[in-house]
Every structure is written in C-alpha cells, then in structure tokens.
Nucleic acid binder design. Structure first.
Length: 607
DNA sequence: GTAGGGTTAG
C-alpha cells in the first residue's frame, strides 16, 4: 500500500455526502500535526475502568468512564493520545460504540490530535454499528492524515459489510486487500467465515476453511483454524440442514485435537433436533455429559424447545427440573420457550400463569414473552385479551417490535376486527416502525378477506408508487383478493405483468389463478393454467390439485376429477381433508364412482 | 495499543 494515496474503497462522493450532511464534519476540522509526548501518569480512575472485567462490566461503568474522560480532557499539559486510546478501546470493548463516536468528537473539540489507533478504534465502532459508510469516511481521514490503513482497519470494514449483509462486497474487499499486499490473519478469516455463515453460505465458508488448511488461499498463508472457526461453520451447516457435513467437520475437528466444548455440542444438538433426529441428538447430549462437558442454559433451552415443539410438555418440564438441579438457572428464553409450548397446545391460561410467575421469580419478561402470549390468545380466538396484553406491554414500557404488530394485525384481521387493525397500523407508525413486506402482505390479505378490496387496492398502488420492490408474495395477496372479490379480469391483467416486472409466479400464484378461473366457471382457462405451470417447470401441489378438482366437481365433470385423482395417485400425494371432501361430493352425486375410491392411496387423512 | 469469536425463545 502506498502512503498518501487516495482512499481506494470509499468513493469520494460517499465521503463528501457524509460531510455535507454534517454527520462526521468534526472528523475533518482539524489539520494533521504530530502529537507531543508527555509522561503524565495514567489517572487512577481510568486505570480502574480499564481493569474492570470487560465481559461483566456493569452499565454504570460507562458513566465512570465518561467522567474520567472529562477529567482527562481538562488536564494540562494534555495527556498523550495513547491514554485516550486506551479509554476508547475499553469503552468499545464494553460495546458502547456510540460513546466512542461522541468521545472522538470531543477530542477534536479539545484541540487534541487523534492518531492512527484512535481512528482505527473509531472506524471499528462505526462498522460495528453497521454504519460502514461512516467507516469509509474515517478511512478517508486515515489517508488524508498520511497514515496507511493496516489489516486491523480492513478487518473492521469487512466485519461491517458482513453485518450489513453485504457479503459480496465483503468478499471483494477481502480480495482487494490481498491484491494490495495486505496479509489477512486468523481474525480476518474468522470474520469472513462468520459473515459467510450468517448469510447462509456455510458451504463457501467450509470451502475457505479447507483452502486455509492447505495453504491454497489467495494470500498463500496456511492457517491452523481454531475451535471458534470450526464452531462457526458447524453451526452454519446445521442451520442450513447440512447435518452430514456438520458431523463430518466435527470429526475432522477432533482429529485435529481440538476439543469440542459446550457451544459446538449445543449447535449440533440443535441441528439434529431441527432435523427430527431426536435419538441422535440425545446421543450427542449423553456423550457430552460423559465427556464431562457441562450443558449450559443454552443447551437446556435447545432441548426444552425441541420437546415443546414435539408437544412433549411434561418431558420439557422434567428437563427444567433437571436443569435447576444442576444449578443451571433458567432464563427468560427458557420461560418463553415453555410458554410457547403451552400456547401450541392451546393452554394459553397456563402460559399466562407461567408469565405471571416469571415476574414473581424475578425474571423480567421481554417483548418476545408478550409476542408469544399475544399469539396464544389470538390462536384461541381471544382477541380482546390479546389486545389487553398489548396495552399492558406498552404501559409497562416494553416497546413492541415489528413482529408484535404483524401478530396483532394477523389476529385482528382474522377476527374481522378491521377498525382495530387500522388503529394498530397507525400505532405502528407512531412507534416509527417501518412495515416489512410481510406486514404489507398481512394488510393486503387482511383487507381482502374482510371485504375491503378497494382499501387493499389503494394500499397496493401506494406500495407500487413508493418504488419499493414488491415480491411475488405481495402479488399473491392482491391476486387472491381480486379473484375472490370477483375481479378476475383485473387479476388476469396483473398476472400478465409479472414477467415484465421480473417476477416468477410460484405454485401459490398459479393456484390462486386456477381458483379464480374455477370460481368464474371458466374451467378451460383453469385447466390451461394447470398445464402452463407444469410446462414452465412449476410443479402443482396438493392445493393446486384440490382447487382444480373442486372446480370440476362443482361443474359435474366427474371424468376430469377422476383423471386428476389418478394423477394425484401417480405422484403419490397424500390426500388431505379437502381432497376427501371433493371425493365425498363426487360420490354424493353418483355412487357409481365408488370404485374410484381405491385411487386414494392411504386413507388416514393428512392434517 | 486498535480488529473476532461460535450455541437458545416469538
């Protein structure tokens, strides 16, 4: 890298835009001059702050740190920048990144001269706050002051990009720094692996890991990966359902004489539970215990969750007892998991009881606790109680999240409480929460299902006008509303615009249109759409079959229904209640069709 | 001196 070169990654326009907005204007106010060295001793209160157990630092420590910072700023002669750097580093380690940002401004205000380390700490704080553009602005300052960014600088930028979900850009920057002759180290690799896994590219991370081990990575360096790198990839593979690869990597890790710990075991157990490999998960849990690795609250939570999802509530409670016996205190996640298990079984009152007892035991419930209970009440069609709980959470100062509003809107629309849903949507805006595409979909289908098609169309047009990219699922909502609301012609027109919008209809889209045609009695068009979807490589599912069969059944076209039943049998689809109701209707029209009953492969009805 | 780091709930 060349000293004094212009920043090669931040575009000049990005930086100037930030400066114009005044966000980082303070960064540019002071000209560069070498700092003077003094030998003032480190003030003892700062020393105290630095010595705090950083992991367990209490929140009020930041106030101490800020007090000391004030004190440091007033000292004459001024302290060397390295003292400020130590304090900034400690504040950053305690995750008070916003304070790093404001402290930096005050250093400039005091006419002190930040050095390269100060700027690296600031840049890292910006990146960790997912403000990579600010990070690049700091990079600009680094260059402007004649410093050379180092691997620490670039590692922070790569981290920020990963956090912002810009994985492609992160990989590009990684390649770029190698080209520039900057050698990535194990921390850089760790960050890149983490970013890949977080964005669902665990196999790429695995590939990188293999190349690292063999020294065939672009930088040519050979790294011995560590437990954390292995654990990150194993967890990523588990989350993507690639259990065989995860287990293989686990064995490889042990082959490298890296001992597994509770985290990697927890990841594997979680993956196995999600894959329904309950016995194997249990096996891993037992091996873990045999090897003297203590399960922690996370491990227990994973197991309790798996049991709850299987409806095995008493076993889940048994595990809770075991957990308490082993002096592993349950936390808010344990309680939320159990509450959700109860709600899944329709036992919302028991869940509520647990919720109340939780507070009594000194566990503070959080927004997710409320979300779980609100969902539980709606599921039991107790909308009033759900709404009461919502008001309670607001009153208690627990800020609802987008998911809270999604649940409320879903429940209210489901219960036909359109006016409440409108109010709820307004509330959401008061909280400054921007609707997600899922929120828009809930609103669209909610309005449609409650005979407010015009309101739905208005919303849809506003979304289109706002220029936000609409996904096929959003179109599915409005198409369904149009078809069911007797506006098939508009639906057909809209459906026709999908390809020019770059959207590919899904099996849901086709099923909606087929339903629309059937409803309008246009069975030929419905049938054609069924053929068209297959031609385009979109396989019909049970819903598509049921929809078309019902259409034919209503029009007394028994032969066509039977033909479809035959195809259903060929594809080994399990019939569901809807399929059977079509068959029953068919039989009620003409019991000579009884012989076709054998087309239904297995009679136990699929839920 | 400054960069990481993995597991759980809706």
């Amino acid at each position: 890298m060349v000293r004094n070169s212009s920043p090669c990654f931040a575009s000049a326009t990005t930086i100037s835009r930030i400066v114009r907005r005044g966000e980082l204007s303070t960064l540019f106010l002071k000209p560069f001059s070498p700092s003077s060295k003094t030998s003032t001793p480190l003030p003892t209160p700062v020393d105290k702050f630095l010595k705090t157990d950083r992991k367990n630092a209490k929140a009020n420590n930041i106030n101490d740190a800020l007090d000391h910072f004030d004190h440091m700023l007033q000292m004459h002669p001024p302290l060397p920048m390295s003292y400020f750097n130590s304090l900034l580093a400690a504040v950053a380690k305690n995750k008070h990144y916003n304070h790093v940002y404001s402290m930096y401004g005050r250093i400039l205000d005091a006419d002190l001269e930040p050095d390269f380390i100060t700027l690296n700490i600031l840049l890292n704080s910006c990146c960790t706050l997912q403000r990579v553009s600010l990070g690049f602005a700091v990079l600009g300052v680094i260059y402007r002051k004649g410093y050379r960014p180092n691997i620490v600088t670039f590692t922070s930028l790569i981290k920020g990009m990963g956090l912002e979900g810009k994985i492609g850009e992160a990989v590009q920057l990684f390649k770029k720094i190698i080209e520039l002759g900057c050698r990535p180290n194990i921390k850089t690799w760790g960050i890149l692996i983490n970013a890949l896994c977080r964005s669902g590219h665990s196999e790429k991370a695995l590939d990188l890991h293999r190349k690292m081990g063999s020294g065939t990575v672009p930088s040519g360096s050979k790294f011995k990966t560590n437990l954390v790198c292995y654990s990150t990839i194993i967890d990523g593979l588990c989350k993507e359902g690639l259990m065989d690869k995860a287990k293989e990597l686990f064995l490889e890790m042990e082959g490298q004489r890296i001992s597994p710990d509770v985290v990697v075991y927890s990841s594997l157990i979680h993956g196995l539970c999600d894959a329904g490999e309950w016995e194997e998960a249990k096996g891993f849990f037992i091996t873990m215990l045999d090897r003297g690795i203590r399960p922690n609250v996370v491990t227990f939570n994973i197991l309790i969750n798996a049991l709850c999802k299987e409806g095995k509530l008493s076993e889940a409670n048994g595990l809770l007892d075991l957990m308490i016996q082993r002096v592993e205190n349950p936390d808010v996640i344990t309680f939320n998991t159990l509450m959700d298990g109860l709600c899944l079984e329709g036992k919302v009152d028991d869940a509520r009881e647990l919720f109340v007892s939780m507070a009594a035991k000194g566990h503070e419930c959080n927004v997710i606790s409320y979300n779980i209970l609100i969902n539980g009440y709606f599921k039991c069609r107790r909308s009033d109680e759900a709404m009461r709980l919502y008001r309670e959470m607001v009153q208690k100062g627990c800020k609802p999240m987008i998911s809270t509003f999604n649940s409320l809107l879903t429940g209210l629309f489901q219960d036909g409480m359109v006016e409440d849903a409108r109010k709820c949507f307004a509330d959401m805006q008061v909280y400054g929460i921007t609707p997600e595409s899922s929120t828009n979909n809930i609103l669209l289908s909610g309005f449609c299902k409650n005979d407010c098609l015009i309101e739905a169309m208005e919303l849809f047009h506003n979304l289109e006008k706002s220029g936000c990219e609409l996904q096929i699922e959003t179109f599915n909502c409005i198409l369904d509303g149009l078809c069911k609301g007797g506006k098939l012609d508009i639906a057909i027109e809209l459906f026709g615009t999908l390809s020019e919008r770059g959207l590919v209809p899904t099996v849901v889209t086709y099923s909606i249109m087929i339903h629309g045609f059937c409803k309008a009695g246009n069975l030929e068009k419905a049938s054609n759409m069924f053929l068209e979807m297959e031609e385009k490589g979109c396989a019909p599912n049970l819903v598509t079959f049921n929809t078309l069969m019902r259409g034919f059944c209503i029009s007394n076209e028994a032969d066509r229904v039977i033909e479809l039943l035959q195809r259903l049998a060929e594809r080994e689809f399990l019939p569901d209640a809807s399929t059977l109701s079509v068959v029953i209707d068919l039989l009620s029209k003409d019991d000579r069709h009884m012989k076709y009953l054998n087309l239904i492969p297995t009679f136990p009805i699929q839920a």
